[in-house]
Design a protein around this nucleic acid. Structure first.
Lengths: 120, 120
DNA sequence: CAAGCGCCTTAAAACACATTAATATATGTA
DNA sequence: TACATATATTAATGTGTTTTAAGGCGCTTG
């Protein structure tokens, strides 16, 4: 049955799009409202070329859509539930026996922040 | 706050581990029961060397744990809910306006299979 | 100790990343 | 209109990482 292979492959590409710190932070930044490239550039502290490249990738996989307004371009999540799903993924990270406790606390903290309404 | 950056980075690595068709299929294969390397080799139709390499990566990120039994090594998911979470991720794949309908059906089909009890 | 099973190392190919520069698009102004 | 500026995208390039395939190693059991 090639269907499941096809779907599995798509899924792996989708996960690949999310497997980058900047792109995760973009999902985070867009979880409640649309943002323009400039905002993301300042939030992530990276060049707008890089922001734009990340967004292009996310756009090509239909994670985000754009809306032009004058000279600015705003982006939003196609499916805002994506942010929730990603936050739930934090459940599964647990590494380095050493600082596992710190990590666990940090994860919980970030998870709470994501799911609460605050923007940082 | 470096905590969120740290967590974001960990999360991106975790997603990176999952962003490979074979590794997704390993998660799928282990979603209900433990399996040995030989089983996975036959299911995925790849060399056991590669299965082993994938498992090593997944092991190092604590997605799976091993259990030796004689000359065989069985693997299982550390957190079986991982499989459910991954299956939920299928919600977000939707590409290529062209065959979007086919894809949607295929996704639904695979999603149902994953969440039902059957093994294929 | 021989066979089966899984792991590890190595090297080449493929891919992703970051940087810089070039191009496009919209706005403001002389 | 022409020119300059602000914003964003795309292209080009060099670098680093991941994936893959191949071969050998080591443990376990019969």
């Amino acid at each position: 049955m090639p269907v499941r292979l096809l779907v599995t492959k798509e899924l792996s590409k989708f996960l690949g799009v999310l497997s980058h710190p900047h792109r995760i932070r973009i999902v985070e930044a867009l979880r409640h409202e649309e943002r323009d490239v400039n905002f993301l550039e300042k939030t992530l502290e990276i060049s707008h070329a890089r922001v734009s490249q990340h967004l292009a990738l996310m756009r090509s996989h239909r994670l985000v859509v754009e809306r032009r307004e004058g000279r600015r371009v705003f982006y939003r999540l196609v499916q805002p539930e994506l942010a929730t799903w990603v936050a739930e993924g934090l459940t599964f990270i647990e590494r380095d026996e050493e600082n596992i406790q710190d990590m666990r606390e940090a994860v919980q903290q970030v998870k709470d922040q994501w799911q609460a309404g605050e923007d940082t």
